[in-house]
Structure formats: C-alpha cells, structure tokens
Design a binder for these strands. Structure first.
Lengths: 135, 135
DNA sequence: TTATCTTTGCAGCATTGTTGCATTTGGTAA
DNA sequence: TTACCAAATGCAACAATGCTGCAAAGATAA
C-alpha cells in the first residue's frame, strides 16, 4: 500500500506534509524520531505541523508513538491489521534504534483483585544484532 | 526501615528535602508525581532541587521513575532487594494511579537473531479496582 | 566552633508538546 | 477551469519536564 492509498483509506486530505512523513516511514525499517523525519523529508514544515500530523496519523491508527526513558520519542507505522492491545518494542542501548516486534507476544502477569487490563506495552532494552557484534 | 536509615545506608547527607520526599513515598501506597510530592511535603523546594534529589535517589537505587504515555511522570520507592531487570507497572486510565506490581513477572518474548535483552519494562493500562466499581 | 564539602535556590536554557488565529492549500461543485 | 469552503499550515505564545552554572546556605567532621 502506498502513501496516497493509505491517506485515502482513512479519508484524510492528501497534503504534502502527510505524504512526506508517511513516505519516510514506509522506507524506514525502524521507528524514526522527529529529528530523523525532519532530515529525510524534502521541504520544511513547522514543528507544530509535524505534531499535528503525528496526532492525526496516530488518531487514525496509521502510525503509533513509542517513548523510551521519558525523552526519546519515535514514531512507526502501525500494523495495518486490527488494533492490538499488546505492543512490544525493542530499544538498543547503544545506537538508540527502536524497532516494533510485531510477531512477538507475551502473557500479562496476574493483576491485583478487581483490576482490569485494557492495553499493555512492553519495552525491551538491550543491544541490537549490529551493536552486539561491534562491541 | 525509616527515612534516616535509608539515607544513612547509602551514605547520603540527610537533608530536609531528601527526608521529606522519602517520607512522602513511604506513606504513599502508590507512585507519586512531582505535583503530589510538592503538595504533601512541608516546606517548599525549588523544582531544580526536586529533580536533583530524584536523580540522586534514583542513582542510589532508592526510588525509580515510571513514565506513562510520555508526559505523566511518577516516582516510587524501589524494592529494597536486588536490582531487578523486569519492571511491571499498572496505570489506571481513569484516576491516573500508578502502582508497582512487585510480585508480578512475565516471560520476555523471543527477540530477533542476535538481539540481547538487558532490561525490560512492562506497563499495563486499564482500570484499578476502585475505578472498576465506580463505573 | 570552625572549616570543608555538599546541597540548595535562582536564572537561564533545551526539548516535547499544545492552543489561538490568520493564511494557504486541497477537494469539490458550478 | 474557476470559485469556494473546509481543512491544513505557519507563526507566536505558552506549558511541562528536565538540565547546567554559579553563588548562598546547610551538613558533617575535626
């Protein structure tokens, strides 16, 4: 599915900003930060526009946001399937790469009496295969 | 273990700010935000002092930080035992309560070839027992 | 009590994110 | 194609979280 089809499917206006951002994400294999997107996009957009675009794309389930350690924020395309309640991400402590582990799943631990689970996020930190070799 | 003993054990100067913050955490059953701490502490401290104190206490393994959805930051006393690599927290979507699930554990999903796990954080979002009844 | 080292308060700055308002752009109907 | 309207964008201002440098205040040891 290409950029235009994605936007059309969600009844979103096909603006250049949205098309550029989705384009960058389609070609990136991993999650990308605002900074990385800014560098790869042709044309300059206001920071506000970026944030509003992210919000729109997140709201439509096209992308999702991953936050590592409070201040590293990355965005990645969502699996075009159904809405999943278990999200698994990997963060490389050395190169900062963030990757969605789409096939991975886990069993939620038992919660205290009366607690209800709605959505669960798992973030695994360590070394990716590349950094693992380099060290 | 009381406030003074905790600070002494880590060779930290027993300042009023540190004692107040640990005191609040000892009496709170759940994780607390900077705002909540500010409200419960007697005496006023500069924001910088809070952040530096948090950093010191985190660095000594006395407390840990939990970040939910990028902008909700809470702090909680750490289990006085050994350093754990699996952290499980619960966040209530309704009242915003954050609780450490100390006994809970889970099996990390399989990672891609060559990836190494070092630390893993799991955050379960849903309704706590109280909000579950109220609705 | 004094000397020394640590902590604190203040000012200023960075990053991530939001809101309001005027302007521009995309999609559509004539 | 042109004109129009709703949606998107840019700009300015602001909020929350967090950091750094420096001077003042506090804690500890002698």
């Amino acid at each position: 599915m290409n950029t235009q089809e994605i936007l059309q499917k969600h009844n979103l206006v096909r603006t250049s900003c949205r098309q550029s951002i989705i384009g960058v994400m389609l070609s990136a294999g991993t999650a990308v930060s605002e900074e990385e997107i800014k560098g790869k996009v042709d044309g300059t957009y206001d920071r506000t526009t970026f944030y509003r675009t992210f919000k729109t794309l997140i709201g439509n389930g096209i992308i999702h946001k991953i936050v590592v350690d409070n201040h590293l924020v990355k965005y990645a395309l969502s699996d075009s399937g159904m809405h999943k309640s278990h999200h698994v991400h990997f963060y490389c402590n050395r190169c900062g790469m963030v990757k969605c582990l789409v096939g991975a799943d886990f069993k939620t631990p038992d919660l205290p009496e009366g607690y209800i689970e709605m959505e669960t996020e798992l973030i695994v930190k360590g070394f990716c295969s590349h950094c693992n070799l380099v060290i």
